[in-house]
Simulated scan of single mutants.
Amino acid sequence: MGEIKKISTVHDFNELLGVEDQHPLVSIIDFSSYPPRHLFRALLGVYGIYIREDEPQNVVYGTSKYDFLGGTLIAIAPGQISGAVDIGTPVQRKGWALLFDTELLRGTSLAQRIHQYSFFSYEVSEALHMQDTERDTIIACMKQIREELSVPQDEYSRTILVSYIEVLLNYCMRFYGRQFATRRMESKDILIRFERILSDYFDRGEQIEHGLPNVQMCAKRLALSPNYFSDLIKRATGERPHEHIQRFLIERVKKELTERNKSISEIAYGLGFNYTHHLSRLFKKVTGMTPTEYVVALNLK
């Protein structure tokens, strides 16, 4: 896979590309403005938003092979691997990049909300495929940031830069929402597979050894990142995957309560709960009744 370079700062990235620093914590790069260079992979210590406008090509990006198309947007968070494997000859890159350091956000409201932009934790195969108008909007935001970087810095510069970055991130959220909405068949298929994973998990008795199913396990079996999986299910059903799992569990509990002559503790341990009171607490949270109250109510009908 080749050497993985370490990029701890925006300056490190600019230096690798031969780009002059305009700001110690922010950089906007129009790749087509620079000569061909060897590709490289790097462990980033900063946030990155990339727009790929190259000809379609199968490259290794991060740890996965992926066929990038023009207008693909990829978001990388600190601690993730970004880039492509060197093919031995310089490549003329096309597209744009925004790099910004967490230090830029320190003390701002965006620093408190940056975790809400869940697409930073999506796998590369879950990248945003932008429509032409969406691509133009994101590039316009990047040009606006670049223009702000070109003027002398003053006491307002940081606030303005953070505001522009937040606008760009909000557009990314909007466009991902459009992508989820236009992929309803994919969402329906994943929801069906999600249900099957839960059913198979209990039918095979995996809960006895591994405990209750969780979002990370389900996402892994669906070959999705937990954040992408969570956002997709939320948009398809109106609830997060962990809420869906809870409802699934409660339906299993109800079935056990009505069909089998078992104590609540036997049901709890049989379904993978560590303690009986964990089941009772969840059951009441979802149904408004304890398991015992539920059984009594059924018998009174």
Rank of each mutant, 00 (worst) to 15 (best):
A75T: 07
N58S: 14
D21G: 03
L39T: 02
L110S: 04
I233P: 02
N299Y: 10
R193L: 09
S82C: 06
M173R: 12
R281Y: 06
D67A: 13
S33F: 08
E134R: 13
R93G: 10
K65P: 00
S8P: 01
S280G: 06
D189L: 10
S263W: 01
G272W: 04
I245C: 04
K5G: 00
D154A: 07
P24G: 05
E195A: 11
E256D: 09
I264R: 01
R93P: 00
R196N: 09
H244C: 01
S8D: 09
L198Q: 08
K234L: 14
F194I: 03
I138E: 11
I197F: 11
A268K: 07
H129G: 00
V215M: 06
Q144S: 15
E259V: 01
L271G: 03
S230Y: 02
G205S: 05
G88C: 08
F283E: 11
Y228F: 15
E53P: 03
D231E: 07
I160Q: 10
Y122I: 03
V151H: 14
Q57P: 00
C218W: 02
I264A: 00
F175V: 06
I7V: 09
D54P: 02
P213K: 04
K188E: 14
F100R: 04
S187V: 04
I81D: 01
V124Q: 07
T159N: 12
V59H: 05
E20G: 05
S199C: 08
L105F: 13
F202V: 04
R183V: 02
S118I: 13
K6P: 00
V253Q: 04
L232R: 11
E103K: 11
I4S: 00
V19H: 02
A181M: 13
Y294C: 01
R146A: 15
G238F: 03
L128D: 06
A42F: 01
S199N: 13
Y275E: 14
V253F: 08
T137D: 14
I138V: 15
I74A: 13
G48C: 11
C141S: 15
E186L: 10
E103P: 03
G270P: 02
I192H: 12
L257G: 12
L161R: 06
D136N: 12
I29C: 04
K6H: 01
K254S: 05
Q153R: 13
T258G: 06
L249I: 04
C141D: 15
M1N: 08
F202H: 08
R52L: 11
L198T: 03
I51L: 14
E148T: 13
E186Q: 09
K143H: 15
E293A: 14
R184N: 03
R93C: 09
Y269G: 05
I76H: 02
L298C: 14
T133Y: 15
T137A: 15
G238V: 07
N214R: 04
I197N: 07
G288E: 07
E148C: 09
E134S: 13
Q22R: 14
I138S: 09
H38C: 02
A42D: 00
T258L: 13
V162E: 06
I267N: 03
I4W: 07
F229V: 07
I139L: 11
N227R: 08
L169E: 03
R93Q: 10
A181G: 08
E259K: 10
E3W: 07
V46T: 12
L73S: 09
K188R: 10
S125C: 08
R41C: 00
L149R: 09
M185S: 12
G205Y: 05
E186W: 13
L222W: 02
K94T: 05
A181H: 13
F68Y: 08
Y117D: 08
V26I: 06
